[in-house]
Design a binder for these strands. Sequence first.
DNA 1: CCAAAAGTGTTGGGCCTACACCCATGG
DNA 2: CCATGGGTGTAGGCCCAACACTTTTGG
Lengths: 242, 242
Amino acid sequence: MTVEGYDPRAFPPFAVTVDLAVFTVRDGRLHVLLIERGTEPYQGAWALPGGFVLPRESAEQAARRELAEETGLSESTVAGLHLEQLRTYSDPGRDPRMRVVSVAYTALLPDLPEPRGGGDAAHACWKAHGGPQRLAFDHERILADAHERVGAKLEYTGLATAFCPAEFTLGELRQVYETVWGVELDRPNFRRKVLTTPGFVEAVEGGARLTGGRGKPAALYRAGPANALHPPLLRPEGRHST
Amino acid sequence: MTVEGYDPRAFPPFAVTVDLAVFTVRDGRLHVLLIERGTEPYQGAWALPGGFVLPRESAEQAARRELAEETGLSESTVAGLHLEQLRTYSDPGRDPRMRVVSVAYTALLPDLPEPRGGGDAAHACWKAHGGPQRLAFDHERILADAHERVGAKLEYTGLATAFCPAEFTLGELRQVYETVWGVELDRPNFRRKVLTTPGFVEAVEGGARLTGGRGKPAALYRAGPANALHPPLLRPEGRHST
DNA sequence: CCAAAAGTGTTGGGCCTACACCCATGG
DNA sequence: CCATGGGTGTAGGCCCAACACTTTTGG
């Protein structure tokens, strides 16, 4: 069967959805945005937010729309977020009701005051990653793939700043790396690497903030224009899955 | 709209297909497997091979099936090939006839004697990459994404051996890198990097082969068990797109 | 003064680039 | 014997991990 010579009405009936793996760093722990399912199957279980792709939108547009609905963030805020396609999950039987092909996306958010800001339909909340939760469908697999991808992207992109507020200290940025990678980093060396990588961060003039109450006030930085880091900021021990 | 509380019959009607970006290295040039379209739209234009995902198979199974049909390789051969999901293309209007969501896959093959071995339905052939061809639909974009992904993967995986026959010389392996990256590499340094990277290649005892007729016979190697390279084999100039 | 976090300096080692040089084969 | 490609050796430099040390705040 090739792509030409087919009857537009004869295609197999598939549903196309998006699933979202949305991460944030809160209290030094990685958190994920989850919803509690209200209907069978998997009633009462936690699941990744998501929903149908509508007939006239792309999968990425659907992902942004769902993210706005679940978090209550404004459309304009969501339009500027870093959203990345993870991969597509298409096993027959991944949804017991029907054939569903799902395009998974990953988003990184700073620690927000409230996850469910606006819409009353939104009932999503942040749950610590790595807890004992079992997720519905194949969402544990999706979440594991997303975590691995985010960890790898921190190495060679400036994506870690997406976890931080608009202005942040190098201590906060370092905590992002330590939390996602699950390791401790040498503070002096981390500082040097970040500051010598062109375009990673930009100093904010005159700014200063205390990270944890004690200690010397830290200088503030903004995300820089670079999206790729040269040289990369590699994980200790070089652990790296394909 | 959330994933629960939907009527299984009310989903929007989408078709799901796979597209294949299949590469090989032939005569020091990167080649891509293409088919010539016989019907509108884009009649007579070149396109990536691909086809529908069937109701009871995953997208990856569909990709392997289509690859076997187009190349004439046996099912068992195709089952062992390295096939990697690239990303999913879902723009409304990417196919003028109907809503088609396509999961793109990338495969790397050694230089085969004949591309269309078996099935008579297969009319695919190898075309040099980078030529003046304009491809149907959004296939040029898919091909560009695939090329970039392959180039990046050569840096930190042992994937380059997938372009080579079962036993190969280091000169052949180096030519893979030079062809995909479009650069020249220093032969002594390339040799050292490959041989000191654990698990990349294994020596074949007593084997020797001539690469281009002239010169000293080269030792033969097999692909090693490692799939990730530590340390990675980086491109010169560190060019790297996200 | 002490604890904690920011920030600076220094040193040794590993890896990589660049290039010089030898080896084996075909014409 | 020369051109061609395989294979070995080596010197310099860059980057980085490790760790000592100073600075500035809160208690």
